[in-house]
Amino acid sequence: MNSLNISNTSLIFASVLIVIALLIDYKEKLGLGKDIFIAAIRTVVQLFVIGYVLSYIFKLDNILVTLFMVLFIIVNAAINAAKRTGGIDKAFSISLIAIGVGTAVSLIVLFVSGALEWTPSQIVPITGMIASNAMTAVGVGYRSMNASFKDQRQQVLEKLALGADIKQATAPIIRHSIKSAMAPSIDRAKTVGLVSLPGMMSGLMFAGIEPTTAIRYQIVVMFMLIATTGFSTMIASYLAYKSYFNDRKQLLD
């Protein structure tokens, strides 16, 4: 199936699926009707806008515009990750550094290895893929860190009382935070091809690329996601744990 043109009529018919969801909501009294409706409208509007924007950027093929788009994605990912910090100081800056560095390192490795070309049609979607995964992972890391500081408060206090530095007192919490954030990427990599056919590979096959070629891209993507989630969460965790303490190395409430 190489005909990749969905007509407006097809789109309208596909919206029957949303009607089904609304019917379920009505029957089960879920109270999600408004949310489903808004979500559907936002999907259509946002994707149409980004579709036309990307179309323009791809045609323009300008390095500055491409870099701006990369930055736009990273800043948005950082804003969203920062919302999940639960009161960590300088959450946006920490998330921006973590996601920015993680994304940049992955992009550089992909360029150097020759897996990626400097064209907007490759850079922008790959950046989106990396940054969104880094965003989710950093958010999971923050949540894990918050929970651990609550659960292990007494242990951290005991270590401080023994003369441990804040990093020594927090080492297991940082480790757990990075592990929790990386676990979904690792699990996904273990089950890829067995449980799911991921987006990148499916998209390429949809576009008529041979599965044996499509999987090569998917392998690169899986490696990239494991590395980025690990790297971004490590940076975020090491920058964030300090905000649980004051300058007298006391654990804050």
Binding site: A161, L162, G163, K249, Q250
Partner: peptide, 23 residues
């Protein structure tokens, strides 16, 4: 005591909790 480096001070002045938590 605020002029001491906290970790060095706490190694000299050792606090033991009422219900300690082992790690």
């Amino acid at each position: 005591i605020n002029q001491y480096e906290p970790t060095e001070y706490r190694k000299l002045v050792s606090y033991c909790f009422q219900t300690p938590s082992l790690f």
